[in-house]
Design a protein around this nucleic acid. Structure first.
Length: 731
DNA sequence: AATGGTTCAGTTTTT
DNA sequence: CTGAACCATT
């Protein structure tokens, strides 16, 4: 144990050793937060605390698993008795045991975002309302926000919406389903109402730790409070500067006011950064300093100044993507930097498309994290819907979905008829029996229902005798699902079959980790996060939203789309100042992911909604007066005209052609080679410079007299040179 | 009831 | 430009 403690700096060590009473650890980006938490747990175990009495809440399952592995390496199998989970997983486990207190069935299913939306749609339709006036998606996020902010639907816009909300909850109840937010609410409800339950859990968890505390919401802090006993052995770790989930109800004041809420709180501040270079930290500090809603904090490092931050100014989004990919190729080739050491971060998922295209064109391997989630894909949801009705025979939503794929001649009309039966009995097998007996459907639909009914009985039998993965295999065969996918769309079969394979693999993997029932697997599938399917060891460039990058670090980071209206996005600009602060924190998170190299880029025009939109560079790119805090050498701008020069006519022409989809690469090259401004250059060309020596061209920007190249000179770094002036010789 | 073709509206961010 | 929703066929 002494070994582990010796590895910590004084603040970290103090935070670890302060085991009793409320503790707030303000952990700046890259300050060794995870190390503190894991060491603290080891320390507790070392002190003789039973692992069984320790609870740690993390933000993702992946973080939980990594923590557990770290601890296991140090303390061995004792680590298995630790409870390290996410809030949602914790509540799911809790409710499987305790939900009967609320007179509910422990076989509930967890509805994800799309299940919630379709449930709301049905509610709205049943109320005979115009779906246009009550967009289900909007209502869903509004309801979710209110639930998270601790307001149980009391503040919806009008009585109709109130009624929708009420019917939605009734519908969930009838289907024995919980949405994400209910997991937390019902858990709190039980703990509040039944003191014997609360006593049990309070007694169980003597020491509680919460990671990423800046992103907890009201319900979550309430839950923690309910679990806490008189000792108040609660240690929360977080950084208000990285609070980026306000939009889903996270309350930054949880962390800002923690020490006033829990009397006698010991506060530890971790400001030494072990991740980034001083240049990057200077920049990050200057960015976040502009925020008001924070306590002063300044990151520092011993690791030295490092490389300058590069700002790429681009005419079009296409140029931007091109530059990024070229810079990656160059660093990969010349510095032997593996592809997985790169991350490209953006504000919204829509920005990834161009990048993907460009990466594919240059055969740069990449993995996209997030976007369409794995468990949201059609083929996966199809099969999971079969699984769900077996576990929970009251899940109407999944029943309807399963009934429709592959199609069995049961459309909207027949569904309505069946729904009447459902309302009478609220149970799928029963409903089918009665509907068949009554001959409620005719012809094809009747046949289809009979077949489905038989299948259903078999699925239930399999679920008793087979492992989840075997169960799925039987189902796929029985449905001839692969054949169905082929008929559905020949262009997408391959990827869909891959996904099927992946689903199977992930089931086998979960089984190896102790998952035995379909129900357990479904909880897992409902609560996985994007980061969970990040594979850090594959040599592929990582592309993801800044939100998805939370907690991660990469050698080289590109933050793209830095334009007003994109990052910060338009809604934040229209909204109150707090939103801009949250956007700025988001930018801060992005910047602090980088260990060695940081590239920031923006494009003056980009296609949004299929239209060309001209944008101004982001207000987050430090204006000159602020960047005075940052050493001049720390930031370099590249690109045709960094701070607002006019385009030349030629540039405008090629930009326009690009917008029209005409490949201008050839024209540019011939233009560039044809004038007096030096040799014709392409990425990959070797050149010689009078003082820098030999190097490799990574990026070519601009034309004619404005033409610049980024050249990598081994040992001297990347230099951006004006071709007309630099006197480069091609070799 | 299912299919295919069309229009139409809409983008933050996610457990 | 893309997905969902709608409509007109068969």
């Amino acid at each position: 144990m002494q070994d582990q403690l010796d590895q910590l700096n004084p603040q970290q060590r103090a935070a670890v050793e302060a085991t009793e009473g409320p503790v707030l650890v303000v952990a700046g980006a890259g300050s060794g937060k995870t190390k503190v938490i894991t060491t603290r747990i080891m320390y507790l175990i070392h002190k003789g605390i039973s692992p069984y009495q320790i609870l740690a809440m993390t933000f993702t399952n992946k973080a939980a698993q990594e923590m557990r592995e770290r601890i296991e390496r140090a303390v061995g199998k004792d680590a298995r008795d630790l409870t390290i989970t996410t809030f949602h997983s914790f509540c799911a486990m809790f409710l499987r045991r305790e939900i009967n207190y609320l007179d509910r069935d422990s076989n509930f299913v967890i509805y994800d975002t799309s299940d919630q939306t379709s449930c709301l749609k049905r509610v709205i339709r049943n109320m005979d309302l115009e779906e246009k006036n009550y967009p289900a998606q909007r209502l869903r996020s509004r309801i979710s926000y209110l639930k998270n902010a601790g307001d149980l639907g009391g503040e919806l816009n009008n009585p109709v919406e109130q009624q929708i909300y009420k019917n939605y909850q009734d519908e969930l109840l009838a289907q024995n389903a919980l949405d994400f937010d209910d997991l937390l609410h019902l858990t709190c409800q039980i703990l509040e109402r039944w003191s014997e339950v609360q006593q049990r859990y309070r007694h169980r968890f003597e020491y509680i730790m919460v990671d990423e505390y800046q992103d907890t919401n009201q319900i979550q802090s309430k839950l923690i409070n309910l679990l806490l006993n008189e000792q108040h052995n609660l240690c929360v770790v977080g950084d208000e500067d990285q609070s980026i989930y306000g939009w889903r109800g996270a309350d930054i004041t949880n962390i800002l006011h923690f020490d006033t809420f829990y009397r006698g709180t010991q506060v530890f501040k971790l400001e030494q950064n072990y991740r980034s270079t001083q240049s990057i930290l200077d920049y990050a500090n200057a960015v976040i300093n502009l925020n008001k809603l924070r306590k002063p904090k300044k990151l520092w490092t011993e690791s030295g100044e490092g490389l300058p931050i590069i700002i790429n100014d681009e005419y079009t989004a296409t140029n931007e993507a091109e530059t990024i990919i070229q810079q990656i190729r160059s660093l990969n080739r010349n510095d032997k930097l593996p592809f997985n050491h790169f991350a490209i971060l953006f504000r919204s998922n829509a920005l990834s498309r161009l990048l993907e295209e460009t990466a594919r064109r240059y055969r740069v391997p990449y993995q996209l994290i997030g976007g369409l989630k794995f468990y949201d894909r059609k083929e996966i949801k199809d099969l999971l819907s079969y699984m769900r009705i077996v576990v929970n025979p009251r899940d109407w939503t999944s029943f309807v979905r399963a009934l429709g794929v592959p199609s069995r001649g049961i459309g909207a009309k027949s569904q309505d008829k069946l729904y009447v039966y459902f309302e009478e009995g609220s149970n799928i097998p029963d409903l089918m029996d009665r509907a068949i007996k009554d001959k409620a459907l005719s012809g094809k639909g009747f046949k289809g229902l009979q077949v489905f009914n038989e299948l259903y009985r078999d699925m239930v039998t399999w679920s008793q005798n087979e492992t989840p993965s075997n169960w799925l295999k039987k189902l796929v065969d029985r449905l001839e699902y692969k054949e169905y996918l082929e008929k559905l769309d020949t262009t997408t079969v391959d990827s869909r079959l891959d996904n099927l394979q992946e689903l199977m693999a992930s089931m086998v993997e979960q089984e190896a980790k102790g998952v035995e029932t379909l129900s357990q697997f479904m909880d897992f599938s409902a609560l996985v996060s994007d980061q969970d399917d990040l594979n850090p060891d594959e040599p592929r460039v990582n592309m993801m939203t800044v939100h998805a990058a939370k907690g991660l670090e990469f050698d080289t980071v590109f933050v793209m789309g830095l334009e007003d209206g994109v990052f910060p996005n338009q809604r934040a600009l229209d909204d109150n100042p707090n939103s801009i602060e949250e956007e700025r924190r988001l930018f801060y998170v992005a910047v602090t992911r980088a260990k060695q190299r940081l590239f920031l880029s923006y494009a003056r025009s980009r296609q949004t909604f299929g239209k060309i939109v001209r944008n101004h560079k982001s207000r987050f790119l430090l204006p000159p007066k602020v960047s005075a805090e940052v050493p001049a050498a720390a930031v370099k701008s590249t690109g045709p005209s960094p701070w607002g020069d006019k385009q030349t006519q030629q540039q405008r022409l090629t930009a326009q052609m690009e917008r029209l989809g005409i490949d201008t690469g050839k024209i540019k090259r011939s233009l560039a080679g044809g004038d007096e401004s030096g040799p014709s250059l392409e990425p990959g060309d070797r050149v010689e410079h009078a003082s820098f020596g030999q190097g490799t061209v990574s990026v070519v920007m601009g034309q004619g007299a404005q033409r610049k190249v980024s050249v990598h000179f081994p040992g001297k770094g990347i230099r951006t040179l004006l071709v007309a002036k630099a006197g480069l010789k091609k070799i």
